[in-house]
């Protein structure tokens, strides 16, 4: 456990905190990668996922794509892009975008699919246009699962952003690799602790956001069900909420 204390001491040492090589800056880089990649991925994946979820077309492709990407080794992709694009931030950023697309895509279309077909049928029967069904029914009811997907994307990227340093892309991984190379274990551990804390904090923040975006009518049922039936409180919207990593 002394090693852990050494790691904490490294974090608390002002010499390691400020300046371009300090962990404040590296942490900023880690966050910039995370939110930059997730934002780009969201712009690509959300419309695509909504299209798949609303029409049901291309669903099989989307499912197998999301599943297949899970097996794609991010380190390999990062290094391959690094060889092609050179060192710096571009290869990591593209890698992380690729990494974040599948969970967001899955969250977007799973959110639409989780909406009861009868509800959509009724919305159509009372005269909503397809656009109104998407905006007024599917988007709000699918939001919890979409946020769940974004949450998974954020957590995957924030964890994997550690590898950016492997192609000289900066972020907190720089300390981990430097520490391993120079046998400075407290530096490696200190950075590892920082990355872990960052991931845990983001997890907490997103868990909170996800609670807040569940439409209130849906929560209303949960409360009722918990009271009357004991076992399945979160069947419809719950499972992927905590599914995220």
């Amino acid at each position: 456990m002394n090693l852990i204390l050494d790691g904490i001491a490294w974090i608390l040492d002002p010499a390691n905190q400020t300046g371009p090589g300090g962990w404040f800056a590296r942490l900023g880089e880690q966050l910039a990668y995370t939110f930059g990649a997730v934002a780009i991925a969201a712009i690509i994946a959300i419309p695509l996922g909504y299209l798949v979820g609303h029409t049901g077309r291309g669903r099989d492709v989307a499912v197998s794509l999301s599943g297949g990407f899970r097996a794609l080794p991010s380190l390999g992709v990062l290094i391959l892009l690094g060889l092609g694009l050179g060192i710096g931030f571009r290869a990591p950023l593209i890698t992380f975008v690729i990494l974040a697309i599948p969970p967001i895509l899955a969250g977007a279309y799973a959110g639409f699919e989780a909406v009861d077909r009868k509800t959509i049928d009724a919305a159509r029967a009372v005269g909503m246009t397809e656009g109104q069904i998407v905006r007024q029914v599917e988007v709000p009811l699918g939001l919890p699962l979409l946020i769940g997907g974004i949450r998974s994307g954020v957590l995957q990227v924030v964890a994997t952003a550690t590898l950016a340093a492997y192609v000289s892309g900066g972020a907190l991984g720089a300390f981990i690799f430097e520490g391993v190379a120079t046998r400075n274990y407290s530096e490696t551990l200190g950075a590892s602790i920082l990355v872990t804390l960052l991931a845990l904090i983001l997890e907490g923040v997103f868990a909170l956001i996800q609670k807040l975006v569940v439409p209130r009518g849906v929560v209303a049922r949960e409360i009722k069900e918990v009271r009357t039936v004991s076992s399945r409180p979160r069947a419809a919207v719950g499972s992927p909420i905590q599914e995220g990593k």
Partner: peptide, 14 residues
């Protein structure tokens, strides 16, 4: 089952 699959897929590892 496939919806569950989809839900599972929105979680991930790195």
């Amino acid at each position: 089952a496939s919806r569950r699959q989809a839900a599972l897929l929105s979680g991930g590892v790195s």
